[in-house]
Nucleic acid binder design. Structure first.
Lengths: 348, 348
DNA sequence: TAATTTTATGTACGCGCGTACATTATGGAA
DNA sequence: TTCCATAATGTACGCGCGTACATAAAATTA
């Protein structure tokens, strides 16, 4: 080595063990002068840690996933946290066919932990996740709950969010409130259905019943796929029962916006002839006419939280944190209703 | 080794050199049985290639960068290409203060090449990029041109895009067309200004002049920062000269949407009292009322292209591709005007 | 001063792969 | 059968770091 020593350099750079101030200075000076840069790969190799947090995204051909508010916000949150903790963020697009390839990610040592976005509750998925858990790899799900498991999950209280949105519509004087839900493979679709039914039941509109699905009149409920188009199409189906419906609560903003466009094209003025409420409080909710009442979800903070959880349990010092109870592993954040004019018509 | 051989395994797995079919089969079988997974880090180490494409994003506190249509689309395109080529995608957020840290990225061997998004033309930035170039590291800029350099750049023809948008407004009968531009550090702000002036000059509204800025009446031009809010605020400034303006061309959709909201709040109906055209053809353009005329930019394909360029010149076989002329390094994609009703009022 | 502890530094090795080179099987052609 | 070219496989080493252990220097104590 240039200055004086040998692999003391390593100690200096990693700041481990005791060392003389002078040596430290000399080493740093020499390193600077020689333009030395540690090779990150070699470091990873020797440390047997990649320094990467993997983020697995669903790969849906034709759908530009980053363009959806939901993913964007979560990614932003993860990015921020990762940055603070000095990790890098490896983006992985889930391959279309195979779904059980999460293991490879860890086995190949590319990531020290990972966050899974856009998972759905299917048998294959469950199995893949259980494998991960059994292998002790640190991972975290965002905005998706697997009932019966105790994975690390960062979710939001969508039942309460939906409840409040529907309650708001009820308070505004609407009674015949329909619901445009998303696909049932997403746990939060179920959550929102629960919230909807709870609010409607409390208001005396639905009969209390064991079976949550049976309590909803068929023509008051439609299923979309979270796309604007599916909302647009649902509008015409609701339109057939338009005399029996005075409001629609949609499971996300994109569908709500589609609904508004659809109703408008059918001659109904959203906010006047029919109230609309959405979910996510995305940017779009602010630019529709009328502006869309929506439920704000802290996606950004959820992303941060997920990254923090994964990275702390992936950290070198972290032994098996099996002391965390299943309940502690499910973080559920609060949502917040944002009232705009799309829902304030009845008695105005 | 389990089956028969030794580091022949490496050959089998990498498919290099000649080998007997049988051996190959045996090795693969054994690997499968033993649950062998190559260690990606060790591979990178030995190959001295990380297998990562770096994507550098501007870090703007409080602004959630993924949420902007532009970045989302580009990232999607990069992601798709990276996936096809078997690379991984490392996201790096540019640190707020320091701007010359690109070198470290390469020196630390974390990436084999990189794509820089959201760069601006500042002296520090230019210097940093020149360093990269001098060091021979493969990188590519997207949607930003550095005049006088010959970096690899994937851009769109924003001058033509702006020209066509303004030409369209002229064709629709508007004459007093104002321009809400973005910050001048972005080359495409300059490009759009050129297109605007060219169209207006051709129409005989502006005097041909050497100095492009001097030819635009002061009250017809405002500068925003690409945010919706800045568009909203610009509306009131334009409003003061409302009798002398019958259309506004905005440098992106977010500002255009802000403009529309601003004008509406001031009692002017966009599309009727004043025509608006935007730029980017983002999702938002479809959901405003009236829908927004905008210029579609192939961000997705630009991302793909950039990834392809970087990865092909970062590939092992690629020697210094100095045979590429500066002109070849600047890819300029076509834009496309999408006409909607926000701009079709004058003679309707 | 010698013995002992504490602190600082050097030595040596291995992480798991790729690969240049050496070596051995294989198959023809002479 | 002999010789040589080619195909197939084995051997050995190094990539650049971290780190356990050995060693040397300094500080403390007896």
């Amino acid at each position: 080595m240039a200055g004086v020593s040998e692999a003391t350099v390593s100690r200096v750079l990693n700041n481990v063990g005791p060392m003389k101030e002078e040596t430290k200075r000399k080493v740093l000076e020499a390193a600077d002068q020689l333009g030395y840069y540690p090779n990150a790969i070699a470091q990873s190799f020797a440390r047997r840690r990649s320094g990467n947090l993997g983020v697995v995204l669903p790969y849906v051909p034709k759908v530009h996933i980053f363009s959806t508010y939901y993913f964007s916000e979560i990614l932003n949150g993860i990015g921020e946290q990762v940055r603070e903790l000095g990790y890098d963020m490896l983006l992985i697009f889930r391959k279309p066919g195979v779904d059980n390839s999460y293991m490879d990610l860890f086995r190949s040592q590319k990531v020290d932990g990972c966050i899974l976005l856009g998972t759905t509750d299917s048998p294959g998925e469950r199995k893949a996740l259980k494998e991960l858990e059994a292998a002790g790899y640190p991972f975290c799900l965002v905005n998706q709950h697997f009932e019966g498991e105790h994975f690390w999950e960062v979710d939001a209280d969508h039942e309460q969010g939906a409840y409040e949105a529907v309650k708001h519509l009820l308070d505004e004087g609407y009674r015949r409130i329909a619901f445009l839900n998303g696909p049932p493979e997403f746990s939060n679709s179920i959550d929102r259905l629960r919230g909807y039914v709870r609010a409607m039941t409390e208001a005396g509109i639905f009969q209390p019943g064991i079976d949550i699905n049976a309590s909803v009149p068929r023509e008051w409920m439609e299923a979309g796929n979270y796309s604007r188009t599916s909302g647009y199409e649902a509008a015409s189906r609701f339109f057939r029962n338009k005399d029996r419906i005075d409001a629609v609560f949609a499971a996300n903003d994109r569908m709500a916006i589609g609904l508004m466009q659809g109703f408008r094209d059918l001659g109904m003025q959203p906010g006047r002839d029919i109230a609309i409420a959405g979910y996510d409080d995305s940017d779009g909710a602010r630019i529709t006419d009328p502006p869309l009442t929506s439920v704000s979800v802290p996606f950004y903070r959820m992303g941060m939280m997920a990254a923090r959880l994964v990275l702390s349990s992936a950290a070198p010092g972290a032994k098996e944190q099996e002391h965390s109870t299943p309940a502690e592993r499910l973080i559920r954040m609060d949502t917040k209703l944002v009232i705009r004019s799309s829902s304030s018509g009845k008695h105005a």
